[in-house]
Design a binder for these strands. Structure first.
Lengths: 115, 115
DNA sequence: CAGGATCCGGGTGGATACTG
DNA sequence: CAGTATCCACCCGGATCCTG
Protein backbone atom coordinates (compact mmCIF):
# COMPACT_ATOMS: atom_id res chain seq x y z
CA UNK A 1 0.00 0.00 0.00
CA UNK A 2 2.81 2.40 0.84
CA UNK A 3 4.38 1.36 -2.42
CA UNK A 4 1.20 2.44 -4.18
CA UNK A 5 1.21 5.85 -2.57
CA UNK A 6 4.91 6.15 -3.07
CA UNK A 7 4.71 5.81 -6.80
CA UNK A 8 5.05 8.79 -9.02
CA UNK A 9 1.45 9.88 -9.51
CA UNK A 10 -0.98 8.31 -7.03
CA UNK A 11 -0.63 11.04 -4.42
CA UNK A 12 -1.23 13.75 -6.98
CA UNK A 13 -4.33 12.08 -8.38
CA UNK A 14 -5.74 11.51 -4.89
CA UNK A 15 -4.99 15.11 -3.99
CA UNK A 16 -6.86 16.34 -7.03
CA UNK A 17 -9.89 14.21 -6.20
CA UNK A 18 -9.71 15.34 -2.58
CA UNK A 19 -9.96 19.03 -3.49
CA UNK A 20 -13.73 18.79 -3.59
CA UNK A 21 -14.45 15.30 -2.29
CA UNK A 22 -18.06 15.28 -3.47
CA UNK A 23 -17.74 16.66 -6.99
CA UNK A 24 -16.70 13.98 -9.51
CA UNK A 25 -13.94 14.96 -11.89
CA UNK A 26 -13.65 14.15 -15.56
CA UNK A 27 -10.63 12.38 -16.97
CA UNK A 28 -9.62 15.48 -18.86
CA UNK A 29 -9.97 17.70 -15.81
CA UNK A 30 -7.60 15.46 -13.88
CA UNK A 31 -5.16 15.44 -16.75
CA UNK A 32 -5.40 19.20 -16.92
CA UNK A 33 -4.82 19.57 -13.18
CA UNK A 34 -1.70 17.40 -13.33
CA UNK A 35 -0.07 18.82 -16.43
CA UNK A 36 2.97 16.54 -16.60
CA UNK A 37 1.12 13.23 -16.37
CA UNK A 38 0.69 11.19 -19.53
CA UNK A 39 -2.66 9.74 -20.51
CA UNK A 40 -1.22 6.31 -20.01
CA UNK A 41 -0.08 6.90 -16.44
CA UNK A 42 -3.29 8.68 -15.50
CA UNK A 43 -5.27 5.73 -16.80
CA UNK A 44 -3.09 3.21 -14.98
CA UNK A 45 -3.11 5.19 -11.73
CA UNK A 46 -6.88 5.58 -11.77
CA UNK A 47 -7.29 1.90 -12.59
CA UNK A 48 -5.17 0.91 -9.58
CA UNK A 49 -7.12 3.19 -7.27
CA UNK A 50 -10.37 1.81 -8.63
CA UNK A 51 -9.12 -1.72 -8.11
CA UNK A 52 -8.40 -0.92 -4.46
CA UNK A 53 -11.89 0.53 -4.04
CA UNK A 54 -10.53 4.00 -3.30
CA UNK A 55 -11.91 5.64 -6.43
CA UNK A 56 -15.20 5.12 -8.25
CA UNK A 57 -15.43 5.36 -12.02
CA UNK A 58 -18.63 6.39 -13.78
CA UNK A 59 -18.93 5.93 -17.52
CA UNK A 60 -21.55 7.88 -19.49
CA UNK A 61 -22.07 6.47 -23.00
CA UNK A 62 -22.66 9.81 -24.65
CA UNK A 63 -21.02 11.39 -27.66
CA UNK A 64 -18.36 12.41 -26.92
CA UNK A 65 -17.96 9.95 -24.06
CA UNK A 66 -17.72 11.27 -20.53
CA UNK A 67 -16.03 9.50 -17.63
CA UNK A 68 -16.03 10.80 -14.10
CA UNK A 69 -13.98 9.81 -11.10
CA UNK A 70 -14.52 10.46 -7.42
CA UNK A 71 -13.21 9.21 -4.11
CA UNK A 72 -15.23 6.44 -2.50
CA UNK A 73 -16.03 6.45 1.23
CA UNK A 74 -12.97 4.29 1.68
CA UNK A 75 -10.89 6.72 -0.31
CA UNK A 76 -12.13 9.61 1.81
CA UNK A 77 -11.38 7.65 4.99
CA UNK A 78 -7.76 7.61 3.90
CA UNK A 79 -7.46 11.39 3.68
CA UNK A 80 -7.18 12.13 7.37
CA UNK A 81 -4.45 9.60 8.26
CA UNK A 82 -2.66 10.65 5.11
CA UNK A 83 -2.91 14.32 6.05
CA UNK A 84 -1.40 13.52 9.45
CA UNK A 85 1.63 12.13 7.72
CA UNK A 86 1.97 14.77 5.03
CA UNK A 87 1.78 17.40 7.77
CA UNK A 88 4.86 15.81 9.33
CA UNK A 89 6.59 15.95 5.98
CA UNK A 90 5.79 19.62 5.55
CA UNK A 91 6.99 20.43 9.06
CA UNK A 92 10.21 18.49 8.61
CA UNK A 93 10.99 19.09 4.98
CA UNK A 94 13.28 22.08 5.42
CA UNK A 95 15.39 20.19 7.95
CA UNK A 96 15.57 17.16 5.72
CA UNK A 97 16.78 19.21 2.79
CA UNK A 98 19.39 20.83 5.00
CA UNK A 99 20.59 17.42 6.15
CA UNK A 100 20.79 16.24 2.56
CA UNK A 101 22.91 19.16 1.47
CA UNK A 102 25.23 18.71 4.46
CA UNK A 103 25.53 15.00 3.77
CA UNK A 104 26.26 15.51 0.09
CA UNK A 105 28.84 18.18 0.85
CA UNK A 106 30.88 16.11 3.30
CA UNK A 107 30.51 13.18 0.93
CA UNK A 108 31.96 15.27 -1.90
CA UNK A 109 34.85 16.30 0.33
CA UNK A 110 35.56 12.74 1.41
CA UNK A 111 35.81 11.54 -2.17
CA UNK A 112 37.24 14.61 -3.82
CA UNK A 113 35.30 15.58 -6.91
CA UNK A 114 36.25 13.97 -10.20
CA UNK A 115 37.82 17.14 -11.64
CA UNK B 1 9.49 11.64 0.79
CA UNK B 2 6.56 9.36 0.16
CA UNK B 3 8.59 7.89 -2.66
CA UNK B 4 11.31 7.10 -0.13
CA UNK B 5 8.94 5.33 2.21
CA UNK B 6 7.24 3.64 -0.68
CA UNK B 7 10.38 1.94 -1.88
CA UNK B 8 10.91 -1.70 -1.25
CA UNK B 9 12.89 -1.68 2.00
CA UNK B 10 12.77 1.67 3.84
CA UNK B 11 9.66 0.87 5.84
CA UNK B 12 11.08 -2.45 6.97
CA UNK B 13 14.38 -0.94 8.06
CA UNK B 14 12.62 1.86 9.95
CA UNK B 15 10.32 -0.69 11.58
CA UNK B 16 13.29 -2.72 12.75
CA UNK B 17 14.96 0.34 14.23
CA UNK B 18 11.68 1.39 15.84
CA UNK B 19 11.30 -1.89 17.74
CA UNK B 20 13.47 -0.56 20.55
CA UNK B 21 14.01 3.07 19.61
CA UNK B 22 16.87 3.57 22.06
CA UNK B 23 18.96 0.47 21.44
CA UNK B 24 21.24 0.86 18.42
CA UNK B 25 21.29 -2.09 16.03
CA UNK B 26 24.25 -3.55 14.22
CA UNK B 27 24.31 -3.91 10.46
CA UNK B 28 24.22 -7.68 10.75
CA UNK B 29 21.31 -7.61 13.16
CA UNK B 30 19.28 -5.56 10.72
CA UNK B 31 20.20 -7.87 7.89
CA UNK B 32 19.21 -10.83 10.04
CA UNK B 33 15.89 -9.20 10.94
CA UNK B 34 15.04 -8.59 7.29
CA UNK B 35 16.09 -11.92 5.79
CA UNK B 36 15.38 -11.19 2.13
CA UNK B 37 17.27 -7.93 1.88
CA UNK B 38 20.64 -7.92 0.12
CA UNK B 39 23.70 -6.27 1.69
CA UNK B 40 23.66 -3.79 -1.12
CA UNK B 41 20.06 -2.67 -0.60
CA UNK B 42 20.46 -2.54 3.16
CA UNK B 43 23.50 -0.31 2.74
CA UNK B 44 21.75 1.95 0.24
CA UNK B 45 18.60 2.19 2.34
CA UNK B 46 20.52 3.06 5.49
CA UNK B 47 22.58 5.58 3.58
CA UNK B 48 19.44 7.33 2.33
CA UNK B 49 17.94 7.44 5.80
CA UNK B 50 21.19 8.80 7.19
CA UNK B 51 21.29 11.41 4.46
CA UNK B 52 17.80 12.57 5.48
CA UNK B 53 18.87 12.77 9.12
CA UNK B 54 16.43 10.07 10.15
CA UNK B 55 19.04 7.51 11.14
CA UNK B 56 22.41 7.94 12.89
CA UNK B 57 25.38 5.75 12.02
CA UNK B 58 28.13 4.99 14.53
CA UNK B 59 31.34 3.38 13.35
CA UNK B 60 33.62 1.61 15.81
CA UNK B 61 37.09 0.91 14.36
CA UNK B 62 37.58 -2.41 16.10
CA UNK B 63 38.50 -5.81 14.73
CA UNK B 64 36.15 -7.01 13.47
CA UNK B 65 34.54 -3.65 12.71
CA UNK B 66 31.24 -2.78 14.34
CA UNK B 67 28.68 -0.33 12.95
CA UNK B 68 25.51 0.59 14.75
CA UNK B 69 22.40 2.35 13.55
CA UNK B 70 19.63 4.05 15.47
CA UNK B 71 16.76 6.44 14.80
CA UNK B 72 17.52 10.10 15.40
CA UNK B 73 15.07 12.39 17.19
CA UNK B 74 13.80 13.35 13.77
CA UNK B 75 13.41 9.71 12.86
CA UNK B 76 11.47 9.03 16.03
CA UNK B 77 9.27 12.05 15.38
CA UNK B 78 8.16 10.33 12.20
CA UNK B 79 6.93 7.20 13.93
CA UNK B 80 3.68 8.55 15.28
CA UNK B 81 2.36 10.13 12.05
CA UNK B 82 3.50 7.03 10.25
CA UNK B 83 1.69 4.79 12.75
CA UNK B 84 -1.49 6.78 12.19
CA UNK B 85 -1.33 5.94 8.56
CA UNK B 86 -0.27 2.31 8.88
CA UNK B 87 -3.14 1.82 11.33
CA UNK B 88 -5.51 2.90 8.56
CA UNK B 89 -3.88 0.41 6.23
CA UNK B 90 -4.27 -2.41 8.74
CA UNK B 91 -7.91 -1.53 9.33
CA UNK B 92 -8.68 -1.32 5.64
CA UNK B 93 -6.43 -4.02 4.23
CA UNK B 94 -8.97 -6.84 4.20
CA UNK B 95 -11.48 -4.71 2.35
CA UNK B 96 -8.87 -3.62 -0.15
CA UNK B 97 -7.86 -7.19 -0.90
CA UNK B 98 -11.51 -8.11 -1.34
CA UNK B 99 -11.98 -5.24 -3.78
CA UNK B 100 -8.91 -6.33 -5.70
CA UNK B 101 -10.13 -9.88 -6.10
CA UNK B 102 -13.55 -8.67 -7.19
CA UNK B 103 -12.01 -6.26 -9.68
CA UNK B 104 -9.69 -8.90 -11.11
CA UNK B 105 -12.52 -11.39 -11.42
CA UNK B 106 -14.87 -9.13 -13.36
CA UNK B 107 -11.89 -8.04 -15.43
CA UNK B 108 -11.13 -11.64 -16.28
CA UNK B 109 -14.76 -12.17 -17.27
CA UNK B 110 -14.88 -9.07 -19.42
CA UNK B 111 -11.86 -10.17 -21.42
CA UNK B 112 -12.32 -13.92 -21.37
CA UNK B 113 -9.13 -15.68 -20.32
CA UNK B 114 -6.67 -16.56 -23.06
CA UNK B 115 -7.34 -20.29 -22.86
C1' DC C 1 -12.94 12.53 -25.17
C1' DA C 2 -11.08 8.74 -22.97
C1' DG C 3 -8.09 5.08 -23.35
C1' DG C 4 -5.87 0.88 -25.66
C1' DA C 5 -1.42 -0.88 -28.06
C1' DT C 6 3.24 -0.77 -28.88
C1' DC C 7 7.98 0.50 -28.62
C1' DC C 8 11.81 1.97 -26.03
C1' DG C 9 15.38 4.12 -22.61
C1' DG C 10 16.73 4.57 -17.89
C1' DG C 11 16.72 3.45 -13.32
C1' DT C 12 15.91 0.03 -9.48
C1' DG C 13 17.21 -3.81 -7.30
C1' DG C 14 19.29 -8.74 -7.26
C1' DA C 15 23.56 -11.87 -7.50
C1' DT C 16 28.16 -12.31 -7.15
C1' DA C 17 32.96 -11.38 -6.14
C1' DC C 18 36.22 -8.72 -3.70
C1' DT C 19 38.28 -5.68 0.46
C1' DG C 20 39.91 -3.27 5.06
C1' DC D 1 31.84 -7.80 9.84
C1' DA D 2 30.44 -4.33 7.03
C1' DG D 3 30.74 -2.77 3.33
C1' DT D 4 32.26 -1.62 -2.18
C1' DA D 5 32.27 -2.72 -7.18
C1' DT D 6 30.47 -4.69 -11.14
C1' DC D 7 27.31 -6.80 -14.10
C1' DC D 8 22.67 -7.65 -15.49
C1' DA D 9 17.46 -8.59 -15.74
C1' DC D 10 13.41 -6.50 -15.10
C1' DC D 11 9.94 -3.11 -14.91
C1' DC D 12 8.29 1.59 -14.61
C1' DG D 13 7.06 5.29 -17.06
C1' DG D 14 7.40 8.41 -21.37
C1' DA D 15 6.33 9.07 -26.37
C1' DT D 16 3.74 8.00 -30.07
C1' DC D 17 0.04 6.19 -32.81
C1' DC D 18 -4.52 4.37 -33.17
C1' DT D 19 -9.82 3.70 -31.94
C1' DG D 20 -15.03 3.64 -30.37
Amino acid sequence: MLTRLGDKWTILVVSMLALSPDVPMRFGALKCGIPDISQRMLTLTLRSLERDGLVARSYFPEVPPRVEYELTDRGRSMLEPLATFTAWIRDTWQDIETSRRAFDDTERDRLGDGR
